[in-house]
């Protein structure tokens, strides 16, 4: 993993609006070919970061390099290799899907015949071939979003940046969208940067994610390792539900050495322990004829991690 080339690289990237810091000393390294999820709540500075990467907004401090090109100094070189799908992507409603793509192809100086071929291929790929000659005004939101993918790929970019690509789509639309995005990386070998506040949807397809809150990148890495980062200093917390739910069960839990604290929350036990006791607990329960109804380790999935970071941030 480390021998891969770093294609998106920011160094102390900072953006200030008057006294409000939208992005604060961001150091982001994204490797070629990976899908990176920039996850954070609304207003965390994700879109600002993306605009700086594209050279559409000037950073107050620091710099962003994309494939070795400085986004601020050489925006044209950067925009030639980066495809961008803005949030709430818009098209010219009175032009057809094909005409919209043709326009963008023209702006990228793609020769006419080559452009037509590519437009056909891309419309086919995003499943809009049959409506390519209809006006975009008649498209549904999902179709627009997929047209956005085609639009982004017209210039055959090395890097694609998608801002909230699944926002406002129905479950089926989200599925299609994520499928398309995954293909961009796995099939085409492009580097993908997705920004989103919809963690569950996006985490599945990301190789690595960065948690971005209030202009700061709090942690970055594969989802599993993000979990471990939280766990390093914190105790393990388990949610357990069992049948029969009686005093004996309480004693059984108490008999495990590593357990530090037991709390009762409605019909659930919340167990704090120094180490991971899941295996032990399940074995014990099996021996004594308890039925396990629910077992969940808290702080393992992204949502918990996210909430955790978010809370910590709030206190500061």
């Amino acid at each position: 993993m480390t021998d891969k080339k770093i294609i998106i690289d920011t160094e102390n990237l900072t953006k200030k609006y008057d006294d409000f810091t939208a992005v604060d000393k961001l150091n982001l390294k994204i490797e070629e070919g990976e899908i990176f999820g920039l996850l954070g709540p609304n207003g965390a500075g994700k879109t600002t970061t993306i605009l700086m990467l594209l050279g559409l907004t000037e950073p107050t401090e620091g710099r962003a390099l994309i494939d070795g090109h400085n986004s601020t100094m050489e925006p044209i070189a950067v925009k030639r290799i980066v495809g961008y799908l803005p949030d709430n992507v818009g098209f010219y409603d009175d032009l057809t899907g094909r005409e919209n793509l043709r326009y963008i192809a023209g702006l990228n100086s793609i020769p006419r015949t080559q452009a037509e071929k590519r437009i056909d291929l891309l419309l086919e790929r995003v499943g809009l071939f049959h409506v390519g000659d209809k006006k975009v005004g008649t498209y549904s939101r999902g179709m627009r979003q997929r047209l956005g993918i085609a639009d982004m790929l017209i210039k055959d970019p090395k890097v694609v940046i998608l801002d909230e690509p699944t926002l406002g789509l129905d479950p089926e639309g989200i599925e299609e969208m994520l499928q398309l995005i995954t293909e961009l990386s796995k099939k085409d070998g492009r580097t993908v940067l997705i920004s989103s506040h919809l963690l569950y949807q996006v985490q599945r397809i990301c190789d690595r994610v960065g948690i971005f809150v209030k202009g700061r990148l709090l942690a970055a890495g594969p989802i599993e390792s993000l979990g471990e980062k939280v766990f390093k200093e914190k105790t393990h917390i388990l949610e357990v539900k069992a049948y029969p739910d009686n005093e004996d069960f309480m004693k059984l839990i108490g008999s495990i050495n590593e357990v530090e604290k037991i709390d009762r929350q409605q019909d659930m036990f919340i167990i704090q322990s120094r180490l991971d006791i899941r295996k032990k607990l399940v074995t014990f329960m099996g021996e004594r004829d308890f039925t396990l109804l629910h077992l969940k380790q808290r702080g393992r999935d992204l949502d918990d991690i996210y909430r955790k970071y978010f809370k910590e941030k709030e206190v500061v």
Binding site: K79, Y84, V89, G90, F91, D93, L107, K155
Partner: peptide, 14 residues
């Protein structure tokens, strides 16, 4: 308003 400005400016033009 249509949201085409960002897309337009993301193309390699000044």
């Amino acid at each position: 308003a249509r949201g085409t400005l960002g897309r337009l400016l993301a193309q390699p033009i000044y």
